[in-house]
Simulated assay, not measured.
Amino acid sequence: MAITTCAGCGATKPGPDGSPTDVYPSTHCDKCPPWKCEICGDMSSADALCGCWVSLAEMPLADVKTLFARDGGFDITPTEEPQP
Rank of each mutant, 00 (worst) to 15 (best):
T4E: 13
T5Y: 00
P14V: 01
D47S: 05
A11R: 12
C37V: 14
A69N: 06
H28K: 13
S55H: 08
P14Q: 10
K13R: 07
P33R: 10
D22Q: 06
Q83Y: 08
D47L: 02
T79I: 04
C37H: 08
R70E: 02
W35Y: 15
T66K: 12
A57T: 07
I3F: 04
P34V: 12
S26V: 10
L56I: 15
P14W: 00
K31E: 05
V23S: 01
P84M: 00
A57S: 03
G72L: 03
P14E: 14
C6F: 06
T66H: 05
M43N: 09
S19K: 09
G10W: 04
P33F: 03
A11L: 01
D63K: 14
C52Q: 13
T21W: 11
C29R: 01
D47M: 14
M43K: 09
C52G: 14
P16A: 15
C9G: 08
W53F: 15
S55W: 06
L61W: 00
P33D: 11
C29T: 01
G41Y: 08
T77G: 04
K31N: 07
P33V: 02
P20E: 11
A7R: 12
C50W: 11
D47N: 11
A62D: 14
P25L: 00
A57E: 00
T27H: 12
C52K: 14
E81C: 00
M43Y: 07
A69P: 00
I76T: 03
T4L: 15
C52L: 12
G10L: 05
C6M: 06
G73P: 02
T5K: 12
A69S: 10
A11I: 00
C29L: 00
A48Y: 06
D71T: 14
K65T: 05
A2M: 08
S44L: 00
T21V: 02
P33S: 10
D75K: 08
P60E: 13
T66D: 13
M43I: 02
G72I: 02
I3E: 05
C50R: 15
S19Y: 05
G18D: 02
C52F: 09
S55D: 13
P78R: 09
